[in-house]
Nucleic acid binder design. Structure first.
Length: 247
DNA sequence: CCCAACCTAAACACTC
DNA sequence: AGAGTGTTTAGGTTGG
């Protein structure tokens, strides 16, 4: 029937427009964005909740599935290194680079420290002074759409099978490690219901797992980014208020 | 109060 | 057959 696994917009590397120049409603912060920081693929996983095996794995497994060049924002953009990353979120929100400073996210997810994952507890010094107050196992403030979005953006190929999306979420938001299974249903529900995500039929010849790969629909990426940015800034200001007792 | 967005649960079909 | 995946429907909560 439909099999509307959206035939992927043939992504040429020119589609990089996504990265910076989409008509992202520029918040005051976003101005001239894009240009500045970006992150080098290498410096990608520098966070305490560093990349999950899932993503790394899928980097392998999802080999050249097609030429849907993972040509989004991150690609081709290079390096300014996270060294400057702390330049504040301001410049780079159009790109997800700010997102990858997961120190920020972590401040929302102190759990990661409370129940450190075996492979990723390395909390680089300097990253977060580690204010470990915070409620145990609180639910992440992000909607499932945002979580999925982050997972997909965080993957090298910009696409993942549901299974890896689960794993990414669990790795980065330990809340879901102990949460009951219903959230997976919600993830799938979101994937198939939301127009923001599209399904890529797996190349059968190389197919290793079940199901399809999922990616962010380019046209909805700005929207997702905006939502994520709002959530992020809202909660980070809040957590600032919370985490900083009184200077 | 209304509406939109989101969450959750459940049922069902399909594929491996 | 069973598990995983994808789709759909329905009801509830919450914030603007």
């Amino acid at each position: 029937m439909e099999t509307s696994s959206h035939t992927l917009p043939s992504f040429s590397s020119s589609s990089t427009t996504l990265g910076g120049s989409l008509p992202l409603t520029p918040s005051p912060q976003l101005t001239s964005s894009s240009v500045s920081l970006t992150l080098s693929p290498v410096s990608f996983p520098p966070s305490p909740t560093s990349l999950s095996p899932a993503t790394a794995e899928s980097a392998h497994s999802s080999s050249p599935v097609s030429d849907f060049a993972a040509s989004h924002c991150l690609e081709g953009q290079s390096t300014q290194s996270l060294g400057q990353v702390n330049t504040s979120d301001q410049d780079d929100l159009t790109c997800l680079s700010w997102l990858h400073q997961r120190g920020d996210l972590l401040s929302l997810q102190p759990l990661a420290k409370i129940t450190p994952l075996p492979q990723q507890q390395t909390c680089t010094p300097g990253q977060l002074p580690s204010p470990p107050p915070a409620p145990v196992s609180s639910k992440p403030p992000y909607s499932f759409s945002s979580l999925i979005f982050m997972a997909l953006e965080d993957s090298p190929q910009k696409r993942l099978p549901v299974k890896d999306i689960y794993e990414w979420i669990v790795s980065n938001f330990p809340y879901y490690r102990t949460a009951t299974g219903g959230w997976r249903n919600s993830v799938r529900h979101n994937l198939s219901l939301s127009k923001s995500f599209c399904r890529i039929q797996r190349d059968k010849s190389q197919s290793v797992g079940k199901g399809s790969l999922w990616c962010v629909c380019p046209e909805y990426r700005p929207v997702l980014l905006e939502v994520l940015r709002k959530t992020h800034s809202y909660h980070s200001t809040n957590s600032n208020l919370i985490n900083k007792p009184a200077l």
